[in-house]
Design a binder for these strands. Structure first.
Lengths: 299, 299
DNA sequence: AGATCGTCTAAAAAAGACAAAAGACAGACG
DNA sequence: CGTCTGTCTTTTGTCTTTTTTAGACGATCT
């Protein structure tokens, strides 16, 4: 059956909203709540019924009032509100990037589904989607072959990334002065400075801002294939950053400084300078990825 | 239920093989047949049982002999041997490339499944896979939006194609002289000459040889992302050639001649010459695609 | 009269069911 | 003793069923 994680997330968000109200306050209409929570009225009704059941709100007739302030115990836990899709992605990326599977290994849909505690259909759908990314291949007679997160994959990924990023950066420099992208670039630059200033505490935010910068630059290509590739890159790097801990802070600091040089180059609109800055950053990122793969895979 | 199109294709291939034998001849062992037909022994056994049922072979004990020469009536028809996947792909590409759906239109999984006479799951799996190609987008709340085979798509496709092909061609020129790719290139060149000589009858074969040439060149990149893109390109062009009939012969002849210039340039290993030939061919292919889209979509 | 609510319908997601296909293993045959 | 065959188990591809969600429409309340 379909999981009701949507309902659970809406329920938690509703508790958050109720925490700001005093006991005895009247709740908004169903339609208004649906708008605020970004779900259908059907879900809102289910949430309200559950809140009444839990004794958080009272529902006499059509007037609903807050009975008591919601507590942490009322909330659904993080594992419950996670969509099946997100669960699978996390588990799978963990498996892949931590080198728990050897390149060339056969992947068994049924076994993975059991291992991740999801239905075979959900697993199958995810594998189908991921087979477009080059991490997996579908065998002609059924079954899946894992191609692996190895040096070859990293090389192929970076070769394309270089091709796309250099093209996008050149196009970015040609954007008219009043294009909103310039303001977004300024904002990203400001946040880079803030992050560097507070690097001891905030270095975890690197993955996010890295994705934002490269997505902004690549958007200048106005090309859906570049966009798709970019989101694959973000996905892989997001999880890669998450689990590769050696020299994490230093590594991120180096990348942030390279970003600043790159941003300055973009703002100068000087083609050779942009190209040089982009290449310098890509080369250092490539080296760092190669090194972490060579270390992670002792085979 | 899973369809037995595999069994039916193996059955037809087996009939083809038997047609070469005289009545009374003994058949190979199951394992040998499985190897020859490229299927499992389970299927071979089903095929042999069906052949005995049809009276084509006799099965007394473990010795099997051919009773009579197979006829056309024994064969399964083309529609029966087509896999569900292939059916969907054909119908969908027909719909897309013939402009039966407007860009931005909502695509309904259930309705498509009914229309194509396949199950919603099979349809859904195909749409999931195709959404990686940029022809479709998945909406956050379920449902699909068709992005369309329009001028934007053609432009984005060709921009990437140009990027990849130029890179691949340059790498191709660096292949060592004893690389098998050169022999394959010679073979493709020979078949180009044969095709041009017999263009009045053979112009239908263009789609196939076009895909072969570009796949060979792009293989020099040794990059799975280039390969994936290349197979998407082949898929789209295959069906596009199939249905765009205006000036078909002339169009193909022009492309074949451009191919020959391109092949000669590759053999010269002269970088600027290769680049010029590739660009010339890509530009003319781009123009021809743009023109056919502008004509096909009167909106 | 206008907003709000209860109920119904349709569509999509997930799970479950089942046939087809692949592969393993032991016994039979030469 | 090696090869071939019969049977069984596992896994995949596809279809069907169940549940969840979105949205529409008329009834109800203020």
């Amino acid at each position: 059956m379909r999981s009701n994680d949507r309902f659970k997330r809406a329920y938690n968000r509703c508790l958050d909203a109720l925490a700001a109200l005093p006991p005895g306050a009247a709740l908004d209409s169903e339609a208004a709540l649906a708008r605020d929570l970004g779900v259908s009225r059907t879900i809102v009704r289910a949430v309200l019924a559950a809140l009444a059941e839990a004794g958080v709100v009272s529902a006499d007739g059509r007037a609903r009032t807050l009975v008591r302030a919601p507590t942490a115990a009322d909330r659904f836990s993080a594992t419950e509100t996670e969509s099946v899709r997100a669960t699978i992605e996390k588990r799978f990326m963990e498996m892949v990037l931590q080198h728990d599977v050897r390149p060339g290994a056969q992947v068994n849909n049924l076994e993975l589904a059991r291992q991740f505690a999801v239905s075979p259909s959900a697993m199958r759908e995810y594998l189908t989607e991921l087979s477009q990314t080059g991490l997996l291949d579908r065998r002609r007679d059924g079954g899946w072959v894992f191609r692996g997160f190895d040096l070859d994959f990293a090389r192929e990924l970076f070769d394309i990334r270089e091709l796309f990023e250099l093209r996008s950066a050149a196009l970015f420099a040609d954007l008219p002065g009043d294009d909103p992208a310039w303001a977004q670039l300024d904002d990203i630059e400001r946040r880079h400075h803030a992050l560097i200033a507070d690097i001891d505490h905030a270095y975890k935010a690197f993955s996010q801002i890295d994705a934002e910068l490269h997505e902004l630059v690549n958007a200048a290509s106005r090309n859906r294939f570049v966009d798709k590739f970019q989101s694959l890159r973000s996905l892989i790097f997001h999880y890669h950053y998450l689990w590769t801990k050696d020299d994490e802070k230093e590594r991120n600091l180096v990348a942030l400084r390279e970003h600043l040089v790159y941003i300055a180059a973009l703002k100068s609109r000087n083609r050779p300078r942009i190209r040089a800055a982009a290449l310098a950053h890509l080369r250092s990122a490539r080296r760092s990825l190669y090194a972490s793969i060579a270390k992670g895979a002792p085979g």
